[in-house]
Design a protein around this nucleic acid. Structure first.
Length: 713
DNA sequence: AAAAAAT
């Protein structure tokens, strides 16, 4: 086999030498670049953060990109101290400190943790810091109630009144462990018998002390009722708001045929360019629709399975063996969901399959279970015995996912299924040492589950051989065809066995996958589930039209609730800032984005899963595929640019038939664009003006936890 | 803009 080069047909330039050394942006590991993180020095700086340094960081400004660049550029507040020269500045400074905060959170008791300081709050005197323990407790209750209608005077706002010490203990001693009594739609029980294949704990990090931070979830709710009601003087301009009473029946199906239908004349929007994002290649630049796409469309509709078709059908009926059926039952999948019933027979028949099923509809099992069974069949046909692990045997199946968390999650479902018949899986993704992954490959693995970067890396190193891969799955296949993913994915697919079976799955599978379909799939079967429109969804969609400056306060008010809340931000910096702000406001929150190292990404997600923290602020790294039980509120702090992103983000709630609420915050000038996007997503949502303190916001937050009350909001 | 490989 010739050495693997990351080139493709369009670009003959090998990715070596200068192109590797060239400075890169986000995620770069060079000390010169913003993504650089040096764990040891960061840890060493701990003690150097003085109260004034922390104050210098500033927390008042918020939400604009300029502000995000760091304290030194911000408008000052009284008492600011310049940071010493050796201190990191700008984003690096913020990140360093955030990491520092996280470390201290993980290992310290409440009283040991350094007190945060905020520019928007009265400065504290620190001269008594040495004998904290002896200081009398501050009496928070004497402070005036917080008013939301005078937010302009932030500097004068009092701290909010909550007294940690009076909060009840949680009856919940399970700390970091993921809950296992979840509704087991897709997620398997964890199996502990092959720890070797699982990611290693980050052992250089101090063991967590289980302090009482988690108790903060039970802190008393602020009483918003005392606040004066606002008058909405801007309610009059309804004309600016998009029509919402459009006739659903008139709208064409959102299918593979978008470009073919005539544009609807729908208000004035028809003339506007449809695309919000310049990121995705313009449709107009793409070749015109061809016959192949028509075939896809036709087959897609022809193969829409009705939920009623599945009644009484078992996994065994679909062709899965006894061991696999039992493994599925242990995962909580007793009977097949429609998308599973639709795709399993075709996968077993060796056909290429395109599968489209709503978020949370069970797609992982729809490809995972038949993939395992198919490998066993092929093995039997070749007369080889299953169950015995042949040293160094090359993988025969590959599952590609766009994010590490998703790859990990898929493995948690597929691994127990594979093990039930003696097959082995391993995860191949970046951000963790490759040694264990390589070791697993050397011992012999049947199914590789991973992300493109590390997989290509190991191929280049000659440590991963995909030439015997006869089944390849692309999860979130349409996303894998987006710019930046497509070419690596193509290169990887070309490494697999020629003529191998290909399975493409996504909730938003569309013609964007045509490039892959054309090159790699042969006469694919296309499946979707009938009746999966938004009208049958369990998600309640709201759009709050707000002033940009009110965004933090409104998010705080929305997130101040009992249930699990997932907040999406457009950038890593803003996600981090929001998590910080919520945490500072007494709402425990963690973040998930690409600027965190993998161990923290994993840990922070686990904190939400376990319920140790109820609020996760994430970039779109969490938009697709990630399953966390019982997220009942999704807040989009920044509106998405693409309708698909909206669908995937909102699909983190309302999973497996449960109730969910999605609240999207937009400035007034974005209403038209947002209406457009919702129309494409076939979602109907009320647009409501809102300012901090509105009862409506509190009601929304509460209703998300208590769905039966949601009708009243 | 995010994500996906490290060096």
């Amino acid at each position: 086999m010739p050495p693997y080069k990351k080139t493709d047909r369009r670009s003959s330039q090998p990715r070596t030498g200068a192109s590797h050394g060239a400075p890169k942006g986000a995620g770069s590991r060079s000390p010169k670049h913003r993504g650089f993180r040096d764990e040891a020095p960061a840890a060493g700086k701990k003690a150097r953060w003085t109260a004034d340094d922390r104050a210098a960081r500033g927390r008042d400004t918020f939400g604009t990109r300029d502000n995000a660049r760091g304290g030194s550029e911000r408008g000052g507040s009284a008492g600011r101290t310049e940071r010493p020269n050796w201190e990191p500045r700008g984003k690096d400074a913020r990140r360093t400190e955030r990491e520092w905060d996280n470390r201290s959170r993980a290992g310290r008791r409440e009283d040991d943790r350094p007190r945060r300081d905020y520019d928007d709050r009265p400065r504290r005197q620190f001269d008594d810091r040495a004998d904290r323990a002896d200081r009398p407790r501050r009496d928070f209750d004497e402070r005036p109630r917080r008013q939301f209608d005078d937010r302009g005077d932030r500097a004068e706002r009092p701290r909010r009144d909550f007294d940690r010490d009076e909060r009840p203990r949680r009856q919940f001693d399970r700390a970091d462990r993921p809950r296992r009594d979840f509704d087991r739609d897709e997620r398997p029980r964890r199996s502990f018998d092959d720890r070797a294949d699982r990611p290693r704990r980050d052992d250089d990090r101090p063991r967590r002390q289980f302090d009482d931070r988690a108790d903060r979830a039970a802190r008393p709710r602020r009483d918003l009722d005392e606040r004066p009601r606002r008058q909405f003087d801007d309610r009059g301009d309804r004309a600016e708001r998009p029509r919402r009473d459009f006739d659903r029946d008139e709208r064409p199906r959102r299918q593979f045929d978008r470009d073919e239908r005539p544009r609807r004349s729908f208000d004035d929007r028809a003339e506007r360019p449809r695309r919000d994002s310049s990121y995705y290649p313009s449709r107009d630049e793409k070749p015109a629709f061809n016959a192949q796409d028509d075939v896809v469309l036709e087959r897609l509709q022809a193969d829409a399975i009705q939920a009623s078709d599945v009644e009484g059908v078992t996994f065994g009926d679909l062709g899965l063996g006894g061991n696999i059926v039992r493994a599925l039952a242990e995962l909580g999948a007793e009977t097949p969901f429609p998308i599973q019933a639709a795709t399993i027979p075709d996968v077993l028949a060796g056909k290429d399959v395109l599968g489209r099923g709503r978020t949370g509809s069970g797609k992982t099992i729809a490809f995972g279970a038949p993939l395992v069974e198919r490998l066993m069949q092929l093995w039997a046909e070749q007369g080889k015995s299953g169950g015995k692990r042949q040293l160094g045997r090359a993988p025969r199946a590959l599952i590609l996912a766009p994010t590490r968390e998703l790859a990990l999650q898929i493995d948690r479902t597929v691994q127990p299924i594979a093990r039930s018949v003696g097959l082995f899986t391993t995860q191949i993704y970046g951000g963790v040492p490759q040694g264990r992954q390589v070791g697993a490959l050397q011992r012999g693995v049947d199914i590789v589950i991973g992300t493109p970067g590390r997989i290509e890396d190991l191929i280049e190193q000659g440590r991963l051989d995909l030439s015997e891969v006869v089944v390849t799955v692309l999860d979130e296949a349409d996303h894998m065809c987006d710019l930046g993913f497509l070419e690596p994915v193509q290169r990887i697919l070309r490494e697999t066995s020629e003529g191998g079976q290909k399975l493409l799955f996504s909730a938003t599978l569309d013609k964007g996958v045509a490039q892959l379909v054309d090159e790699f799939l042969v006469d694919p079967a296309v499946h979707e589930v009938a009746g999966e429109d938004q009208a049958s969804s369990t998600i309640d969609h709201r759009v709050l039209v707000i002033e940009h400056r009110d965004k933090p306060a409104i998010i705080e008010q929305l997130a101040d609730r009992e249930g699990k809340t997932l907040i999406f931000a457009r950038t890593r910096a803003f996600a981090e800032m929001l998590a910080d702000q919520l945490d500072d406001a007494g709402i425990p929150a963690v973040s998930l984005h690409g600027d965190l190292n993998q161990s923290r990404r994993t840990r922070n997600l686990a904190q939400l899963t376990s319920g140790r923290v109820n609020v996760l602020v994430a970039t779109d790294v969490a938009a697709r595929g990630i399953h966390v039980d019982d997220i009942d509120l999704v807040i989009q702090a920044d509106a998405p640019d693409e309708y698909k992103t909206y669908l995937h983000r909102s699909g983190r709630t309302g999973r497996a038939g449960k109730q969910g609420t999605v609240v999207t915050l937009i400035p007034r000038q974005r209403q038209r664009r947002m209406g457009d996007l919702l129309q494409r997503a076939e979602i109907e949502a009320d647009f409501v003006p809102a300012i901090p303190g509105d009862q409506l916001i509190t009601d929304l937050a509460l209703a998300a936890s208590a769905p039966e009350a949601s009708d009243e909001v």
